[in-house]
Design a protein around this nucleic acid. Sequence first.
DNA 1: TCTCTGCCAAGAGGA
Length: 688
Amino acid sequence: MEELDELEELMEKNFGDETAPPTETFQKKMEISFPKTLLSRGMDNRYLVLAVNIVQNEVGNHEKHLTITASQSLGDKELCILRNDWCSVPVAPGDIIHLEGDSISDTWIVDKDFGYLILYPDMLISGTSVASSIRCMRRAVLSETFRKSDHTTRPMLIGTILHEIFQKAVSDSFAPEKLQELALHTLQETRHLKEMYRLNLNQEEIKQEVEEYLPSFSKWAGDFMHKDMSTDFPQMQLSLPSDDSKDNSTCNVEVVKALDIEESIWSPRFGLKGKIDVTVGVKIHRGYKMKYKIMPLELKTGKESNSIEHRSQVVLYTLLSQERRPDPEAGLLLYLKTGQMYPVPAKHLDKRELLKLRNQMAFSLFNRITKSASGKEKIQLAPLPQIIEDYQTCKYCSQVDNCALSSRAFEQQMDDGSVPVSMLPKIMEETQHLQLAHLEYFRLWCLMLTLETQSKENRKNHQNIWLIPASEMEKSGNCIGNLIKTENVKTACDGQYLHNFQRKNGAMPVTNLMSGDKIILSGEERALFVVARGYVKKINTTTVTCLLDRNLSVHPESTLFRLDLEEKNCDIVTPLGNLSKLMENIHASKRLRELIIDLREPQFTSYLSSVLPHDAKDTVACILKGLNKPQRQAMKKVLLSKDYTLIVGMPGTGKTTTICTLVKVRKFTQISRNLQRRKFADQSPLNL
DNA sequence: TCTCTGCCAAGAGGA
C-alpha cells in the first residue's frame, strides 16, 4: 500500500501542472516526499522547486523563472531566473536543485556567463559517463542502466596495466631499469594473469606491447618532471581563467610531484563522482611569473586523439578537484604512447555545457517511469533519449544490442516517429533473433525492476553524509562521528589498510554498526568526505577498527573523522544486466529463452549410470545416506536433469540440505571425471 | 517492524 502511495506521489510530481502555483496539497505532498532536513542553504544549498514559469523578458527572449525554497517551512521563497540555453533544463515542480553563483536580494540568475544549476545534485554521475554522453546520450543512459558484466578487451587490459605502471613510477622513479622492474612486477599480478588467461593472450606478447610504451614514460618524465634547471621545459599554450589577459598564453609546465593516485572524489556540489588517475602539483612558469596549482592528470593509452571526450573528462575532474582543494582551473591530458601532454583549461563554457549534459542524464535516470499518454492509469517506462543517426558511432557502440532491443520493445510499438527511419534496418538486424514473446518479456521485467527501484529510491542514505551532521546522524545508530586515528595504519594487503579510531572525547555512542558492515569514511570537515571506503573489522565501547581502501596516515593526527554505514540500496543492476544477457544473440541465451520465456519443458535423462561415473557410485550412495526419501528423490531428479529442476518445499523440509549434498556430489563426480580424463591423457601418445 | 534477493567500483580503449 505504502508503495502505491509513493507511486501516486511520483506520478503527481511528474505530471503536475508545470505552471500552476503550488497548492496546499502539493506543498503537503512535497513535505512528505522530501524530508525537511534535505533542504539547506550555503555551499551545499539544496532548493526545492515550487513552480516553473516561462516568461518573456523585455528584449523578447524566453526565460524560465523558478520559484524555489530552501526553508524548512517552504514559506521563504526565492526566485531563480534561467536564461539562454539554461531554459532547456528539464526542471519541474518538486525537483531538488543546487545553485552555483550568487543570489542578490533572493534572486539567482543563471545565464551563459555566470552560475550553474545542478538538477538532482545528490545523484552522483561519473565523469566518464557524462563525457560519453557527448556523442550519444542514449548510450550513456543505457550503460548506466544495463551495466553488463562487460568483458575486458585486450586494449583495455593493456590500458589498465600501463596505468598502474605509470602510477607506481610517478611516486617512485622513471629510470628505465626501474620502469622495467615495475612493469614486470605489474604483469605478474594475479588479477592481470587471470585476465590474460580469460582472453587467451600470450603473456610474452603482452609484456612486449607494454614495454614498447616505457621509453615514452621516461621521455615524459624527462620533459616535465621536476629538475634543477627550470628553463628547458616544453612550451605549452595555456591560459587560465584567472590569468591576466595581457599575459602571453605560452608557458612552461613543470610537474613537481604526485600527491595522489586513483583519488576517488564524490562531488554533491556538481552531482558528479570519479577517480582521478594522478593528482599532481604543477608549477606554471610564464616569464618571471610562477603559479602553483594542484591539477588532475588523466592518462590515456590509446590513440593520441586529444578528443572532446578526453578533454571533457579532464574538465569534469577539475570540478571534482574543487571538493578537496582550490579550483585548479585546468587539468592535464597525457597520451602514454607518445608521452605527449596537452593542457586542458577548464573554461566556463565547457563546464556549463558538460553540466547541462549531466542534468539531462540525471533527468533520464531519475524519471524512469511515466503514465502513458493514451491509457488513463497505464504505467510504463519513460522514453529513453533518442536514437542518433550516426552510423560510425553506432558501429563501435557497446550498447547497440540494448539500444536496438529497447527500441523494439518500447519505442516501435508507439510508432510516434521517434525512431529515425534510416536506423530501422540496423535495429531489425540486431533483434531479428527475438520473437514477440521475448520482447514482451523484456518489456515486462524492465518495468517491474524499474518500479522496484523507484519505490525504494528515497531510502538511499548516502546523501545524509553531506547533508546531515554526524552528531545528528548518530541518533539513527548508523553513524559515528568525532573520531580520531589511534595507532599506526597497518597495511593488510595490497590496497587494504587497517585503521583504528577512537572518540576524541568519551566512549562510543550507542550504535548498530557491527563487524562486517560496509562503511564510508569521511572527514567531519567538508573537504574530506568519502575519503575512504571499507568494512568494520572490530568494534567495542572504545575503539573501532576498519579495513579501508586508502591509507589515511597522510592526514594529520588531529583530523576528525566520521564513519557512516553504507546501506545496501535496492540493486537492480545485476537483474537488469541478466535480462539484457538473456536477450543476446548467442546460443546459451537462446536456450535460456526457450526454457524461461517459451516455457519449453525441461528434459531429463533416464539412467543415473549415464551421468554418474561407474566408480563413483559407492561414494555417491554414501553421500546420499544422510538424506530422507523425498530428498533423495529430489537429488535423483536433479542429477538426471538436462536443463533445470525446481525443488519446492515448506520451510524446514530440508531444501538447503539437499542443495548442499548436491554440491558435494557434483564436486566429487567432477573430481572423479577429471581423474578419468587424466588417466586417458596419460595413456595417449600426445600426453595432454 | 523485520526478513529476503539481486551488489565492489569508475574506467580500462575503440573511432
